[in-house]
Amino acid sequence: MQNQTRLQALSAFLKAQRAHVTPQSVGMPAGIRRRTPGLRREEVAQLAGVSTTWYTWLEQGRDIKVSAPVLESIASALQLTVDERKYLFALALDTGMGVTSHREETPQISLSLQKILQELKICPTIISDRRCNIVAWNEAASHVFLDFERIPPEERNLIRLLFSRKELRRLAVNWEHFVSGFLAIFRAYYGQYVEDDWYDRFLKEMSGVHPDFDRLWAESEVSSAPEVLLHFRHSKAGPMQFHLTSLQVQGAAELRCSIYTPAPDTTTEAKLSKLMAGST
């Protein structure tokens, strides 16, 4: 990612986070003449102990000198989560991972990870890389989501599929909620790999092809491992509920294991068993 793109991403993030913080939540009066939601720039500057001019320059994406202690103060003023703080630091200090190649080989799945996939028989599971490309999945995932084997490898990107495949749009009762979890993960990667311009190219591609992408991307949070309850309406099995747990896989390849566990006290597990047995 080029320096200007990084600074633009920082600017957009600060503006979005400032809009989410109410004056009351930080002990300030609400006032009666607020034209925009959230805090004003001068209020963030006051809370962080910096000048309004300096904070304005930072939020405008100017290439100015910043320090970790000042960023901590800004993060506290904006009430950022741990993942949001990491995102702020990566963009402001340019501390993301360096990337030496724009073409990356498909990560190899270890035998132990393959075994885990096989054993999670009743839990749809997807393994993806840091670009959200799908590199492995189990049988349950093919039954609930898509037959990924029929999708060309270069098109097996989770974000792209969520926006392009009608089956996935119909599957989720609240499709935007479904997408938000993956966009939160993608944004965490985006901040971490600030030197990889693949992300910028991908975002431009998605923005040009899918009209609703820009809004959802702008509204997305930052989370390395969101845990959410998803409501599906499967075309064959009917209503289903899953808890999504996203785990980082330790090793040389940066992989993520997304596990969909059937919600307890529901008929989801029984429905999935019948679906996989071919009796639904």
Rank of each mutant, 00 (worst) to 15 (best):
L168T: 06
T266P: 00
Y199D: 06
A75G: 12
I126Q: 02
I64M: 01
V70D: 01
L244I: 07
Y87D: 08
P153F: 04
P153R: 15
K166L: 14
W54K: 03
R201M: 10
S25R: 02
Q79C: 08
V50W: 03
I159M: 04
K204Q: 13
K121D: 09
A48R: 11
I134F: 00
K236R: 01
V249P: 04
F242L: 15
M206A: 10
E105H: 12
M206D: 05
E42A: 03
E139H: 10
L162E: 12
H20C: 12
Q46W: 00
K65D: 10
T53K: 04
R85F: 00
K271L: 14
T125F: 11
A19L: 01
G31I: 00
R215F: 05
S112F: 02
I74V: 14
E205D: 04
N174Y: 06
D147R: 12
A45V: 06
D197W: 15
F178R: 12
V249C: 09
P152R: 01
A218C: 08
L183T: 06
E205A: 00
A188Q: 01
F89Q: 09
Q60S: 01
S235T: 11
G31A: 00
W137L: 05
L14Y: 14
I159F: 01
T52Y: 06
S224K: 09
A77Q: 07
N157V: 08
A172S: 15
S279A: 06
A270N: 11
L203Y: 13
S220K: 04
Q4R: 15
E149D: 15
V144C: 06
A9T: 10
E176K: 15
F148V: 01
A77N: 05
C257A: 06
R215E: 14
G49F: 01
V99M: 08
R34N: 11
K15D: 02
A252S: 08
R41Y: 11
F163V: 07
F89P: 11
R85S: 08
T95V: 04
E104S: 10
R85N: 03
H20M: 14
L14R: 02
R187Y: 06
V144D: 12
V66Y: 02
A45Y: 14
K166I: 13
L14Q: 02
F148D: 04
T261D: 09
T22E: 06
L203A: 07
V21C: 12
L168P: 07
G31S: 03
S101D: 09
R62I: 03
V209D: 09
S67L: 01
K65S: 12
E176W: 04
L58F: 01
P239S: 06
R103W: 02
E205C: 00
E84G: 14
Y87I: 08
A90L: 14
R6M: 14
E43A: 11
V228W: 04
I122S: 08
S180Y: 00
H20T: 13
Q60L: 01
W57C: 03
L255C: 02
I64L: 05
P226E: 03
L146H: 09
A48L: 13
A12E: 08
R40S: 11
G98L: 14
L120N: 13
W217C: 02
P239H: 06
M28H: 12
H177I: 02
